Simulated assay, not measured.
Amino acid sequence: MKKITILLISILIFACSQRQQNEKNIDKNVGTDDDSISNSFEASYRKTNPALKYSYDNISQIHNYSNNWDLDNDGIKDEVYFVGTGGAHLFYFLRVVLSTDKKPREFTFIETDYPILTGTDTLNYKKDVHGFIVTNLGENLTPTIIIRLDDQIYRNNKELNKMKIKTKNVLISFENGNPKYDSL
């Protein structure tokens, strides 16, 4: 009986050590490291829009789309950022720095939780805006940023009500450095 007990204990110890080793191997393969989690769109843009200048800073939670568009029509491309607001459900507000005056313009009342650039070549603006787009609109082909707001941000935004924005698609353009707002 003593031999059987020792044998069973040995088998249990061996089985437990094998299970621990297997769990360690699974953890290595899964990639449980927090550094692998990011809100960056870089991998997607490398495939879908490799010419786009873009970076994301995980620490400051800023999507940097600078040097892609000339929003003030001075021949110099401007700075465009989506800045994270923190929190469990991360939202981003728009920040634009025009090359003509280098003043940051923070549109904290225009937030999106998905600041991904959507292509304009296959887009029906009135129905399919996701994230944001930059395109030339109107008779003068004014460079315009269109940002799609989610339901919660749109419904609870008193600033948009004051501006008479009537849809979740907010248009922002600039005239003499001043922002102009509209909606689709």
Score class of each variant (00 low, 15 high):
residue 132 F to H: 10
residue 128 D to L: 03
residue 101 D to F: 06
residue 81 Y to P: 04
residue 46 R to W: 00
residue 66 S to Q: 04
residue 178 N to P: 00
residue 131 G to L: 04
residue 14 F to V: 15
residue 92 Y to V: 08
residue 178 N to W: 02
residue 50 P to Q: 10
residue 181 Y to F: 15
residue 120 T to C: 07
residue 99 S to V: 02
residue 132 F to S: 03
residue 8 L to N: 09
residue 15 A to H: 05
residue 115 P to Y: 10
residue 86 G to L: 07
residue 84 G to Q: 09
residue 69 W to M: 07
residue 38 S to R: 08
residue 69 W to G: 00
residue 102 K to M: 07
residue 41 F to R: 00
residue 74 D to F: 04
residue 161 N to K: 15
residue 40 S to Q: 06
residue 20 Q to C: 08
residue 95 R to W: 02
residue 71 L to I: 01
residue 109 F to M: 12
residue 137 L to W: 02
residue 89 H to F: 11
residue 150 D to H: 13
residue 24 K to W: 04
residue 136 N to K: 15
residue 166 K to N: 15
residue 161 N to S: 12
residue 35 D to L: 10
residue 115 P to S: 13
residue 181 Y to S: 05
residue 152 Q to W: 09
residue 158 K to D: 14
residue 1 M to P: 11
residue 157 N to C: 11
residue 177 G to R: 04
residue 174 F to D: 01
residue 12 L to Y: 07
residue 47 K to N: 02
residue 123 L to F: 03
residue 180 K to D: 08
residue 111 E to W: 03
residue 89 H to W: 03
residue 175 E to V: 09
residue 161 N to P: 01
residue 158 K to N: 15
residue 42 E to M: 05
residue 155 R to A: 14
residue 66 S to I: 03
residue 28 K to R: 13
residue 159 E to N: 11
residue 83 V to S: 01
residue 156 N to W: 05
residue 27 D to N: 13
residue 97 V to N: 09
residue 2 K to F: 08
residue 135 T to I: 05
residue 81 Y to S: 05
residue 56 Y to G: 06
residue 19 R to N: 11
residue 106 E to Y: 03
residue 136 N to S: 14
residue 66 S to K: 08
residue 90 L to S: 11
residue 46 R to T: 00
residue 110 I to E: 06
residue 81 Y to V: 08
residue 65 Y to M: 10
residue 58 N to K: 15
residue 65 Y to Q: 04
residue 124 N to R: 07
residue 55 S to Q: 01
residue 6 I to F: 10
residue 126 K to Q: 09
residue 164 K to A: 10
residue 84 G to D: 11
residue 145 I to F: 05
residue 36 S to W: 08
residue 5 T to C: 05
residue 159 E to I: 13
residue 106 E to F: 01
residue 125 Y to E: 06
residue 132 F to K: 03
residue 110 I to C: 09
residue 78 D to I: 14
residue 67 N to I: 02
residue 8 L to P: 02
residue 96 V to R: 12
residue 111 E to R: 15
residue 116 I to N: 04
residue 137 L to K: 14
residue 127 K to W: 01
residue 182 D to Q: 00
residue 83 V to G: 09
residue 115 P to E: 13
residue 108 T to N: 12
residue 80 V to Q: 12
residue 151 D to G: 03
residue 77 K to Y: 08
